[in-house]
């Protein structure tokens, strides 16, 4: 049963690693602004191919104006 010493040591070390990760993330300010990243995430596609977006958005605008 002395394997339990190893298991406990390992589990405590894993727990402490996660704890250090938590402290690190707080220190880096990851919890300071919890809103903007959630919006920013959705923009990724638009950043890659702005040219295509341009065409698409042009079409949309025409529809919008004709609706007005």
């Amino acid at each position: 049963m002395s394997i339990i010493y190893v298991l406990i040591t390992v589990s405590v070390i894993v727990a402490i690693i996660f704890f250090i990760a938590f402290v690190y993330s707080v220190k880096k300010g990851q919890y300071d602004d919890t809103y903007t990243p959630s919006v920013r995430m959705l923009f990724e596609d638009e950043l890659v191919k702005p040219k295509k977006e341009q065409e698409k958005s042009d079409n949309k605008e025409i529809i919008q104006t004709s609706n007005q």
């Binding site: 702005p50 040219k51 977006e53 958005s57 042009d58």
Partner: peptide, 8 residues
């Protein structure tokens, strides 16, 4: 500057 996505 291809930023009209602003309005979408």
């Amino acid at each position: 500057n291809d930023l009209t996505y602003y309005y979408d």
